[in-house]
Each structure stands twice: as C-alpha cells, then as structure tokens.
Amino acid sequence: MKLFKFPYLVQEEILQNVKSSELFLLSFVSKKIKEKIKSSQLNRFKSIDYIRYECNHDGQITVYNHPRDSWGYMLRFVKHGKPHNDYFQLKVSGKMINFRHVQDDVLTLMAGDVKLNTDPITSYTYVVRETDNRVASVLIQGGTFSFGVWDKTEEEFLRMMD
C-alpha cells in the first residue's frame, strides 16, 4: 500500500486520523513525508492551545498536547532502566536516542543512556491587557522561571527586551 499513491485529499484524511505521537514518528521516515505532515496538519497544530510537561517524583516527564476539543499524550521521557529489546533508535538533533512504545501506546523516549546535548531552555512569552495595554510576561532561562507584570506598554516592553 503506497501512501503517496492515494489522492491528495485521501492522504490528508489518513494523516488526520494518525495520533500526534505517531505523526512524530512518521516525520522521521523521510523529508517528503515530514513536509507533507507540516503542510497538511497545519490546522491540527494551530488547534493546540498549549503543551504541558508534567514531571513526577521519579523524574519521569510526560508531554501532553491540549487541542481545543481534546487532549492527548505525546511523549514520555524515562530513564533508561532495564534493557529492552523492543526499542528502536532515531537520530534526534544529531544524537541517536532509543524509543519504544509502552502498553498504552504512549511513545517513550529512553533518555538514560544518552547525554542530551541541548542548550539550556530559554523561552519567554507575554500577554497584553486590553484595557490599558500593559504587559505580563513569563521567562524561562536555565533553571529559572520568572513571572512579571510590567507597567509598560507592549512597545516599551519589546524595546526593553531587545
């Protein structure tokens, strides 16, 4: 069964029925399918209000996406514990990382045996209050999480951030 032999709209309908975690894996199959996912699933990505990272006491991180109408698991990060022979490896940002599916179809990233060579997270976002055009912002930098409410307009705030 050749996916690319289906008419364009049928391909879209099929991808529409593929879960987020499976779309993520599908994007590793080829550059062409990755582009296809990006172009055809724009509405799905736009419908995601936010992505939630939940860390439990074992250090296990679970990633959920929250679309407007439903929510779902995307990915779970776990320490590489007991050796499993049902994992598969993918090259992510130049590093080979082990993945496996667990019983409830949650895609699990086994990160214990790899050193993730990622820069410390730096991210900020802000909202503007409509009534007086004042800004509230959130900044994540390294291990620091900052929340601020500013007596500045959006323009002043952006100038300050530059």
Binding site: M1, N17, K19, E22, L26, F88, D105
Partner: peptide, 11 residues
C-alpha cells in the same frame, strides 16, 4: 489505514 501504523516504529 491510519490504524495500520499504530504502535509501529518509523522503519
């Protein structure tokens, strides 16, 4: 058709 790839690796 979408269900066919459930729980499968990229390969």
């Amino acid at each position: 058709v979408a269900m066919m790839v459930k729980g499968k690796s990229p390969e």
